[in-house]
């Protein structure tokens, strides 16, 4: 899923400072699962914003609402009648959701309440870690199922570098060396000899480096 976290209150407050009537718009997909921008977080953020506003002697009217997804237009349509009554939408979805809502309602500012962090997993309740950088050219079959692009701090395809120490990355002792994990996995698969296979220089054109990407499936288009 896409993992995100709420922006600092100060930043959000500055963003919405000019407005007195806003929609705080949650998303029931990824950001609900990672407790960043679901219905519950909409309630908490709205309460905090009202408290903050009222203590300054100002008012704010907040419509709390959550869409099934902010990345599909049929859901975004649900707020069409609501939008003209407000001055701004504070979206708690990932960057994709914020932009998609903005595309549908060009006449109203759509602002981001969360920072979109990464594509990752829930290791345990309240603890998420990165697994994928969406490079568009998966190499997991070559590296024992562990991604060197996202899990090595330098994205080395032929790692580890000399900074791997006690299984930890040189960047920070809390980061597990991705290549240590790859080597351990290759060992447990009985494929350690694969370590010596040279992985050639990567084609990054399928990644962000090729410009904004799209996927088209003609068989599915209407």
């Amino acid at each position: 899923m896409i993992v995100g976290e709420r922006k600092p209150m100060e930043e959000i407050e500055a963003m919405i400072d000019p407005f007195e009537k806003i929609i705080v718009l949650g998303c029931r997909e990824c950001v609900t699962v990672c407790s960043a921008g679901g219905e519950k977080e909409v309630g908490i953020l709205s309460a905090a914003l009202r408290l903050s506003r009222e203590q300054k002697g100002r008012t704010i009217e907040i419509k709390e609402f959550a869409l099934e997804r902010q990345c599909d237009h049929e859901y975004i349509e649900q707020i069409r009648s609501m939008v003209p009554n407000y001055q701004a939408v504070l979206s708690m979805a990932c960057g994709a959701g914020v932009q998609f809502v903005a595309e549908f309602y060009p006449e109203i500012p759509v602002l981001p309440a969360i920072n979109t962090n990464f594509i990752g997993v829930t290791e345990e309740q309240g603890y998420w870690t990165e697994r994928c950088q969406a490079c568009g050219n998966c190499v997991l079959h070559l590296t024992g199922g562990i991604c060197p692009v996202s899990r090595c701090s330098k994205s080395l395809l032929n790692g580890p570098c000399g900074g791997s120490s006690d299984g930890k990355c040189e960047v920070n002792k809390e980061i597990v060396c991705g290549w240590q994990l790859i080597i351990e996995r290759l060992k447990s698969l009985g494929q350690l000899e694969r370590y010596e296979e040279y992985i050639p220089i990567k084609d990054w054109s399928t990644s962000r480096d090729g410009g904004p990407r799209k996927v088209v499936r003609e068989d599915l288009r209407l």
Binding site: N158, P160, S164, G167, C177, E196
Partner: peptide, 16 residues
């Protein structure tokens, strides 16, 4: 550096 067991294979990789 760690892991020690791949230090020689790593040199072999550079040699290759």
């Amino acid at each position: 550096a760690d892991p020690f067991e791949i230090r020689v294979p790593r040199l072999a990789k550079k040699a290759a």
